[in-house]
């Protein structure tokens, strides 16, 4: 970063990057941010690592599972024991 006004620009644009990675930023702000990203390495790193952060959490969450005994107790509580043998199938 070089110079005060530049830092100010980064601070101002940081509030838009969440919408930006979601693809929901207004076209005008999107153009402004992308122009800035061409010139600012720091903000480019922030955007890249923000995307990566979200995808890493998602990858970790994909490994979460429903333990078989939890499913069995759930079906029992709901009086659905006769459907328990069916595959979880999802």
């Amino acid at each position: 970063m070089n110079g005060h006004s530049h830092v100010h620009k980064c601070d101002h644009l940081i509030s838009t990057i969440s919408d930006y990675v979601d693809g929901s930023l207004s076209p005008q702000l999107c153009a402004e941010l992308e122009k800035h990203l061409c010139e600012c390495e720091n903000c480019t790193v922030v955007v890249d690592t923000l995307r990566k952060t979200i995808s890493l959490v998602q990858t970790c969450a994909e490994d979460d599972c429903l333990p078989g005994e939890v499913r069995a107790r759930l079906f029992h509580t709901l009086n659905l024991d006769d459907f328990l043998k069916n595959d979880a199938g999802v």
Binding site: D64, C65, L66, R71, L74, F75, L78, L80, F83, N86, A88, G89, V90
Partner: peptide
């Protein structure tokens, strides 16, 4: 159908 819903959304 309820059992199917439970299996779809319990995880």
């Amino acid at each position: 159908e309820f059992a199917r819903m439970v299996d779809s959304y319990s995880l």
